[in-house]
Design a protein around this nucleic acid. Structure first.
Lengths: 153, 153
DNA sequence: TACTGATGATCAGCATACTGACTATATTGT
DNA sequence: ACAATATAGTCAGTATGCTGATCATCAGTA
């Protein structure tokens, strides 16, 4: 394993790079300019409207510092509203706007396609096995990240 | 696949995040401050001293814009020397310094350990299968990246 | 009630990646 | 030889991630 191109860490970086590029290309075809991270945030906020930033970060495994900037940009694009929580003045409550909802729904099928394209180097049986192993491997190292996934309670 | 946490793209992002964190933690234990990208660059330059930046970028699948900054920082840390090529004045020729060589060799075993830790969620049979599928999947989407891997000739 | 610690959010600073544009130099074709 | 094209590298601008620090607010406890 002296060649970095055979090391898991390096392969993951390259795979991630391509995965992001595929996402961008697909989304750009529809005339949108959303990053994978922004999409994930919108999807999670739709599922749990009124969520605060730290909880959101935990549910999609982001760093809490990073999420601030992501939310900033989504608010600027008018996909999100951010308000001070009525019950905790430290917290910011997040909700989708109408535009956010329609955008999310228009993008959903394209994002699905992008996922398939990311796996397109594998045949169907391999895809299933790969996703299973990827989930298991990711779960195994979850706590090593500064931003571990926190399961919904 | 409506939940982003089951989507391959999202899993890859999380896995990559943890992989980088593991690398940093291991390298920091030895008192060094090298990123995975910087390590990969050093390793490749050792294998091919006198390589230019574009070729290096192709061999480890970086963007040519990004590699400039990476090399800058490695030069600043005195691991690398960058000189104008004698045969092509556009090109910059890269070589390791003594310090670069010794650092690379000290880090190598730790980097190996980090790779194993990245896979630690899987049993031995799964690890082999996962790396095989990861290589195949990555190769399948290689051309979608701005920085595809270019095999050595 | 007042103190202490925990928590939500932000800020500054840095490194990786990307896009698009630009400069300088080589190469190719006529 | 000269024009057109290609290539190596850089720069400006933006987004994701990280570290570590700070501020405001909340919650538990003496």
């Amino acid at each position: 394993m002296t060649d970095v191109n055979t090391m898991p860490g390096h392969l993951i970086r390259r795979y991630h790079q391509a995965s992001v590029a595929i996402f961008h290309a697909r989304v750009a075809e529809l005339g949108f300019d959303l990053t994978p991270v922004q999409y994930a945030a919108l999807a999670k906020i739709e599922a749990q409207p009124g969520i605060d930033q730290v909880t959101l970060a935990g549910l999609i495994a982001y760093d809490r510092t990073t999420i601030g900037g992501v939310v900033d940009r989504l608010v600027q694009k008018q996909y999100l509203v951010r308000e001070v929580s009525a019950t905790d003045r430290r917290a910011r409550v997040l909700k989708l706007t109408e535009l956010g909802v329609t955008t999310l729904h228009r993008l959903a099928p394209v994002v699905e396609e992008a996922q398939l394209q990311v796996l397109s180097g594998l045949d169907e049986r391999e895809q299933a096995e790969f996703v299973r192993l990827l989930q298991k491997a990711t779960a195994g190292v979850n706590q090593m990240s500064r931003a571990p996934l926190k399961e919904a309670e």
